[in-house]
């Protein structure tokens, strides 16, 4: 029985197209990821990496296709997913302490009216220890360094005790020590059969960090186990030659105000 459950794919993306202002920024993405893998999403700027994880989490509307997590629609498994947004996406001048932020990870489970209890604080403290931030519990977030901000976000994600984690560039602007600490942590998470999906920039570390890799450039170039997919040919396909025709058609769709898909 246990085995059967873990056979369910962590993530299934079926024929997904995502458009901004009608212009498709991701075309017909199809992929399936098994559980318990550390997955990297790579591709050039504007390839739609962040868009893909946002669409998967239901933060952006899909123009076509569907997404399933653990074989269920996203809204049925919200409590099992976790998200680490880009560090710059929030205002770090916000009047809050590190603990306040990490406790947010418990909000999804708490529900309306309930305040974080002792048990939640224990979980939060535990997560802070895991990322090496235990001595900063009451530090104001405006006084954190970039690496510490990232660790705080990571602790918040851990506090969710989710099964699948989406992380948008967790290594951006962090020092080498933090990067190493983070990757070790992610490893230990996948060892516990958690699935971790990371938007990543640095190609050199890809083979070393990730079990699976998703190569993206407005369309899916390739995905699969790193050793078989992370090839020169696929890299050229991802970073080389722009598909000008695709861009032109996308612009045309926006200019003409074309519907995304024909109404059936």
């Amino acid at each position: 029985m246990e085995k059967e459950i873990s056979l369910v794919p962590a993530l299934e993306v079926h024929d997904v197209t995502v458009a901004f202002d009608r212009k498709p920024v991701l075309w017909n993405i199809d992929l399936t990821l098994p559980q318990g893998k550390l997955v990297g999403i790579i591709g050039p700027n504007g390839a739609g990496k962040s868009t893909l994880i946002k669409a998967v989490m239901g933060l952006l509307p899909l123009s076509s296709g569907y997404v399933k997590l653990f074989d269920k629609p996203i809204d049925d498994v919200r409590k099992r997913i976790s998200y680490v947004p880009q560090r710059e996406s929030v205002d770090w001048d916000f009047p809050a302490s590190v603990l306040d932020i990490v406790l947010m990870g418990r909000y999804g489970k708490l529900g309306l009216f309930k305040r974080p209890r002792k048990a939640d604080i224990d979980v939060a403290m535990d997560c802070l220890r895991k990322v090496g931030m235990e001595s900063f519990v009451n530090r104001q977030i405006s006084q954190l360094s970039g690496g510490q901000q990232q660790r705080t976000f990571l602790a918040r994600a851990l506090a969710q005790q989710a099964d699948i984690y989406f992380m948008d560039e967790p290594f951006a602007g962090v020092d080498a020590a933090t990067e190493k600490a983070i990757i070790n942590l992610l490893r230990s998470m996948t060892d516990q059969k958690k699935t971790v999906i990371v938007v990543h920039h640095d190609l050199q570390s890809v083979p070393q960090y990730f079990d699976y890799v998703i190569m993206l450039n407005t369309r899916l170039v390739a995905y699969g186990p790193t050793e078989s997919v992370f090839t020169q040919e696929n890299l050229t396909g991802t970073y080389g030659g722009k598909l000008t025709l695709l861009t032109d058609v996308g612009d045309l769709i926006r200019r003409e105000g074309f519907p995304n898909r024909e109404a059936k």
């Binding site: 017909n28 199809d30 598909l243 058609v249 074309f258 898909r261 024909e262």
Partner: peptide
């Protein structure tokens, strides 16, 4: 060119066919 599965291309083409200059 985009290596999209043949069974997923029909719907997309149904839109593009009316649009292309």
């Amino acid at each position: 060119q985009l290596h999209i599965a043949p069974d997923h291309v029909h719907e997309d083409a149904d839109t593009i066919e009316h649009l292309l200059t």
